[in-house]
Every structure is written in C-alpha cells, then in structure tokens.
Design a protein around this nucleic acid. Structure first.
Lengths: 238, 238
DNA sequence: TGTCAATATTATTTCGATATTTTTTCGACA
DNA sequence: TGTCGAAAAAATATCGAAATAATATTGACA
C-alpha cells in the first residue's frame, strides 16, 4: 500500500496505526494476537514487530506475558498532550517562520488551499459528514499543519511534533463521532496561515495556541458526554 | 536483570539499549541478526521485537529487507538534540518548581547529595576515570536530572525528556572517551540545585540551559577531534 | 454457601526451519 | 582491463508449531 512497505511488518505497522488513530480499534481494547494475525493476514513475527513499534508511538501498551492493548484515552492525558503539543508546535512554527524560504511559502500555500477547498463546504449545521470527506479533511489538515513547521530546520522537533499530532488526532476523532457540528475551524486555519505568511511569528503562534486550545475544549466536552453515557449504560446494567 | 524483564524480548531490549547508549555497540554499525542472537542468547523473534522498540527510541534505524543499524551520531544532530532538550527540560523544570511539594524537595536533595558524593572527588586533571566510577556517575547524574523534573505533573513532558536525555547521554559518552578532563560540572549542578530549592524558576532554567550548552560544546569538540582522526586514518589508507 | 487448590483452557512467547531478498563472487565478453 | 550478468553465498523476513505462562473452571472441603 504505502511507499515503504518493503516488509509485512511495515505494512502491518501502518495498518494497525491507522486503525488505532481512526478509532476502528477502540481505545483500551485488548489486542488478541491470534485474531489480529488472521485479520491482517500475517504471522506472529511481523505482527509482534508492528506492535513493538506502536509502543514507541504511544499507541499501544503492553504488559509482559499478558499481551497488548490499544493505549487508553483519558481527559487527563488529553490536557497533557494538548499542552505539550502547543509547546512543540509553536516552537517549530516560530523557527519555520524565521527560516522558511519561498519554496516553503509555496508549499504552505498549496496545503492551505487544498484544505480550504474542503473546509469551505463543510456543514455548519449538525449534519453527519460522509466518511470519505472526513478522511480527505483529516489528510489535508494533517498536511497543512505539517507544511507549516516543515522549515523549522530541526528534525527532532518535527519528529516530536508528528508524535503529538498523532495523539491529538486520536482524541479529535472521538469528538467528531459525538458532536457532528463543525465550529468555524476554517477561520482559525486562515488566521494561522495569514499570520505565517506575514512572518508575524508571535501572532501565528498565538493563533496556533488558540486553535489547539479550542480543539481540545471541543474534545473534552465530547469525552465528558461519552463518559456520562458510559456511566449510564454500565450503571443500568449493574 | 531489571525489574520488568518478564519476557526475553524485554531483557534483550534493555541490554541492547544499554549497549548502544554506552557505546559498546558503535554508532552507525550494522546489527547482524544472527550474531546478535548468539551474543544475547535469544532467537529471532524476541531480538527483532527488541530492535523494533529501539527504533521508537531513535537508537536503531532500519531499512526494509536490508536490516538494522545503530543510529548514527552527527554534529548536526547533536545541536538539534541539545536545543530541543533544553526546550523540554526547562519547560519541565519550570513546571516542577511550580508544582513540587516537600516530598519532591527531599527526593531532589537526596539525588543531588548522592551525585555530589561522586563528583567531589572527580579528577580535575586529565586522568582516566575507572569504568565503575563512570557508571556510578552516569546513574546518579541521570537520577538527579530526572528527580528535578519529576514533579512537572506532565507524563508526556517526562517521557519526551527521557528520550532526549538518552540521546544526549550517547553523545556525552563519546566525549568522555576522548577528552578525559572533567570540567567543574559539579558547580553547574549545584547552581541548578540551589536555584531550584530557592524556587527561582528563571534562574534554575538559565543554569540548566548553560549546563546543557556547555556539555554540548564539550561533546562538539570531542566529535570534531574524532572526525579529524578518522579522516587521517581513512585518508592514509585511501 | 464460600473458599481454595488442582485442573483445563486460553493466550502469549519463543524457537527452528523455510522462503525471500540482497549482496558477493566469478567468468564471459567487449 | 573493465563491465555486465548469471550463479552462489549470505543475510533478512516469515511461518507454523512447541513451550510457557496466565486465566478460567471445576469440584472438594469447611
């Protein structure tokens, strides 16, 4: 499938990662090895190798001799991830605005335009979004935020940012499955884009912080609602 | 060996990690699977699982169907790691000084005292340090820096800090094998400790930045010297 | 009825061998 | 002599089953 799928372990790693991030594999659920091996059509070796790599991405947790689980999501971790992501993301954006050349500007603009094309006809009401359109938005949102910081000149900062973005994406997908109303996220993206193009690092970082904080707040509400529902359900059964 | 060595893969992961960080496995060297399996007395499955996890720690790199290598060290990456580490470490220290309670103060003090006990009779001259004493210093230095930020209240910040500390340690060990002179690193540790105990976050962070920058500078010189020697050697042969 | 231990079951972990790919070697040919 | 390509060697990647550990079940006993 992907470019660097030289081995089965690579392919399985990517498939599992996608299924965890988009929530197809539920947070906290047990990963039964035999079942996974059948689902992904691989043997134990590449499967375990993929799971070991996912531990490094903080998407999977394990306990010796007891197996693997999808890393759980929690309100506390949401706050933690959001705060650290804001730190890393603003640091990277700041550096990118300092270092970025004309080529970078073109790439950011292209990514922004592609994202804008999807966002301009997002439902403002609480309609459900077709899954295919959601995936397009996710991909372009990811590409836009990645393009912004791509000129930071720091591979390590980029790497940590990618890790944290992925964590955030997991949380965001939860909220998209609960409250299907889209706040005007496009205005926030445009504010970041404009400030970046004006090389106004301070404003670009402030707008980024605001953007991340608002997203986190939305997720927090969705998770709190979910937790209430779960309590009701499990409470009703008990 | 370690506490959580429930599986062979765990044990092998820890052994390999230690051997990479302390330089026993040279940076950039090829990791031949059969040889490693014999050295560590394990089969392919736990070995590959351990290597996959080390990729997440940025200690091992791989290329599909071509195997694994110890992640290389470079001057560029040294700068990158040092800068990002300073960012994370000061953020964490700042939060710890804000949040730390009396128990935290006691732990930091205990870690500092233990470190001081080793550092006070370090050779100021360019004597070589006995390996056993070096390992003691490494362990206590790690424990001191970990204790400082332990009250940051942010698991993610702590996790990223640990990753970056480990990267730095790899580089530092290079310089310790080249220039065996110890600068007065104890004064720097004491300055950080004192400022922290006075809850002077600004000063504590400044002292930390200085400490990290000086260490990086020392490593940079050592690596530059090494690179010159290597050029001579490979140049002489070519 | 409740607890505990022995047993059965299920799941994870590991090994050894095989399949596949890459790298090296060697010889034909220009 | 140098280059190209085919065959041999070496190394990686994968499978399937055996070994090991954790969990669930059962029945004896208090």
């Amino acid at each position: 499938m992907s470019s660097s799928d030289k081995t089965l372990a690579d392919r399985t790693y990517r498939q599992l990662r996608g299924d965890i991030v988009n929530g197809r594999l539920a947070a906290g659920s047990k990963l039964k090895l035999e079942g996974l091996a059948q689902d992904y059509e691989v043997g134990m070796s590449p499967l375990r190798e993929a799971l070991a790599r996912l531990m490094g991405d903080l998407l999977v947790v394990s306990e010796g001799q007891r197996g693997f689980w999808v890393a759980p999501l929690s309100l506390d971790e949401l706050d933690d991830v959001s705060r650290v992501r804001a730190l890393i993301e603003t640091e990277a954006l700041n550096a990118a605005i300092r270092n970025g050349d004309a080529q970078w500007e073109r790439e950011v603009t292209a990514a922004f335009d592609a994202l804008a094309a999807v966002e301009e006809h997002l439902p403002h009401t609480s309609e459900a979004l077709p899954p295919e359109q959601l995936e397009t938005w996710e991909a372009r949102n990811r590409a836009f935020h990645a393009a912004l910081v791509s000129a930071a000149g720091s591979p390590m900062l980029i790497k940590l940012r990618a890790l944290l973005y992925q964590q955030s994406e997991r949380y965001r997908r939860v909220s998209l499955n609960v409250s299907r109303g889209w706040r005007n996220v496009h205005d926030e993206h445009r504010a970041i884009y404009d400030a970046t193009m004006q090389r106004n690092a301070l404003r670009a970082c402030r707008m980024t912080e605001l953007h991340l904080a608002r997203t986190a707040e939305e997720v927090r509400k969705a998770m709190a609602a979910l937790a209430r529902d779960d309590d009701q359900v499990s409470g009703g059964k008990a």
